[in-house]
Design a binder for these strands. Sequence first.
DNA 1: GGTTCTAGAACC
DNA 2: GGTTCTAGAACC
Lengths: 204, 204
Amino acid sequence: MASPVPHAPAPAETSRKINRSTRNKCPPPFLSKTYDLLEAEEEKRGGEEASEIERKKIVSWNSQGNGFIVWYPAEFSEIMLPKYFKHSNFSSFIRQLNTYGFKKTASKRWEFQHVKFQRGYRHLLAEITRKKCESSAFPAYLKASEEHKCRAMEEENTRALMMLMEENKNLRREKTELQMQIAHFKTIEMKLWECYQNKVRRLC
Amino acid sequence: MASPVPHAPAPAETSRKINRSTRNKCPPPFLSKTYDLLEAEEEKRGGEEASEIERKKIVSWNSQGNGFIVWYPAEFSEIMLPKYFKHSNFSSFIRQLNTYGFKKTASKRWEFQHVKFQRGYRHLLAEITRKKCESSAFPAYLKASEEHKCRAMEEENTRALMMLMEENKNLRREKTELQMQIAHFKTIEMKLWECYQNKVRRLC
DNA sequence: GGTTCTAGAACC
DNA sequence: GGTTCTAGAACC
């Protein structure tokens, strides 16, 4: 990936180095709008006739152009958000930033960054995706179900163990009985043999 | 619990109906401050010398006195929050409200309610507790450990099952061997008997 | 996919 | 216990 030139808007709009996989793909509307919003705000400087308050930048790219800063959250929420989104709720805006993997990069300012959200690189927006909702791969009800499965498996194992132990006990008993039978047979055999020999001896 | 009188501040401050379990207990600072903040805002009406903007209510009890409304989140955050808390972050304030079990009760307004947060019933604040953090009873690392325990138990069960199955197989084999021995004995016995009878018959 | 409400978790 | 950042989940 070409690295953005610090302090200078890159000629990205005319770049042809477009990733094949994202060529022709529209970026998510949220990202386009946020990018638009920054570009529009950037243009405020130009207007000679603009009043001081209108020229005050509410939001802007940061100095490196690799992130942006909401300087006035109140004005941003009340004036800018409704122009681009269906609400004027700062929290909702931040929720979306998090959904797309932006990070807040300063503790005292509302500054956010994303590696593929760079001034002059609008085409990179198409490569930003919503965070894999881990809950869609493993949502809460599945976690519960996971616990449930654990218990179920435990119960099943317990049943299997008990059946095996029962069978085992029976086999042992049968084994003992058979061993007793054999002992009995041995006794009988011995007696028979004795008897036979006695008979034979006497008769001979 | 005494139910608050709608549309009329109750004489709670002088009430002696204090729950024994919470008597003398300080309410959480967050709740006291939020209550204070509403009371202070209420007093604005009085001041004759107060300018229009100073009299504008940024936040107030709702009409029933069973909740409150932040009318101007921006001013509330920038002006009021820092007076009472260590920040001017509306989200942080809301996070706290949620921690103490407040609910947002209107979709288009920042109105919040809690059954024990009522105008005129400051003593009820002491009965509000932080939500049981389910993760403190069952935190993430325990969940992981829970999964681990599940796997461990499964492995143990599997080992037990395999040992039992092995023992079982041996018992079956022994049983078969014993049954064969018995069959053999029976044959011998029969032959011995035949032999005996033949011998006896011939000799007699 | 966007918006809203609430909670988890780390850090203070 | 408070503050911050981020995520879960329901609803639209």
